[in-house]
């Protein structure tokens, strides 16, 4: 059987809210080492990869590898019934056709149980090679969210260019153009406001803002977002959940028309 309990149930709620508009349904794969998901959006332009480590859970048991297909909209409906402070326990029997979610209030006075029907989902798994990137930028997640939102009111795509001192986000549209530059700032007083750039090679790539806006829905998960860029390769937009795992988004670059 599979059984996992997470004390910060709000975290699971945030993860599902971050991906439910991008992917319709997905298989949640569970094994000894943890709980993971990999899925492409319906137009196969972007890829979501979630991994939550077994030791990030308060209790974790997975007797045999299971793959549980769920419709994200339905999972979201159920998790919306959990309080942000609730502990959440997920349970499923081997070869079972449902997963049970148990929500427990911090004072343990209210205990709720919801069963979600599992589905058979055909999904293609892609191998993501470990790579060294031309540039890695770590910036406050809220800052990134604001940048992609603001630029979306001007254009459809953003050129992200990274040099050793700064990262620039630029767009052009019918009404004009916009450029936002963030300088490297390894602020020690307020680590949550730091912007760090690690660069092997200056790089500039163009991406669809619509997808970056969608990825930014993961902002509540983490103080910082990490952007990894290499020439002609997909961007990685990564949110780290301390002590628990990561949610990564991959987006193919736009090519010159």
């Amino acid at each position: 059987m599979f059984e996992a309990r997470i004390a910060q149930g709000g975290l699971l709620k945030k993860v599902v809210e971050a991906i439910k508009d991008l992917i319709e349904d997905a298989n949640f794969d569970c094994n000894n080492s943890g709980f993971s998901l990999q899925a492409m959006d319906s137009s196969h332009v972007s890829l979501v990869a979630l991994s939550l480590r077994a030791d990030g859970f308060e209790h974790y048991r997975c007797d045999r590898n299971v793959s549980m297909g769920m419709k994200l909209a339905n999972l979201s409906k159920i998790l919306k019934c959990a309080g942000n402070e609730d502990a959440i326990t997920m349970k499923s029997e081997d070869n079972g056709d449902t997963i049970t979610f148990m929500f427990e209030t911090p004072n343990q006075e209210r205990l709720s149980e919801f069963d979600l029907k599992l589905m058979d989902i055909d999904s293609e798994h892609l191998g993501i090679p470990e790579a060294e990137y031309d540039a890695t930028v770590k910036l406050p997640a809220g800052e990134f969210q604001r940048i992609v939102k603001d630029l979306s009111s001007i254009g459809d795509t953003v050129e992200i260019s990274v040099t050793k001192d700064a990262v620039k986000f630029g767009t052009t549209g019918d009404i004009g153009s916009a450029n936002i530059m963030c300088r490297q700032n390894k602020s020690v007083d307020k680590p949550e406001e730091s912007t760090e750039i690690d660069i092997n090679e200056p790089v500039a790539l163009t991406f669809a803002l619509r997808y970056l806006n969608s990825f930014a829905k993961a902002t509540p998960l983490s103080t910082h977002v990490v952007l990894k860029l290499s020439k002609d390769l997909p961007i990685v937009v990564e949110y780290h959940v301390p002590d628990v795992g990561r949610l990564g988004f991959y987006l193919a670059p736009k090519v010159e028309e």
Binding site: H44, L126, G127, I128, P234, L251
Partner: peptide
């Protein structure tokens, strides 16, 4: 989505 490449063009199926 003009000029947009598919993500599966970059990563091989497992």
């Amino acid at each position: 989505l003009a000029g947009q490449r598919s993500i599966s063009a970059f990563f091989a199926a497992k």
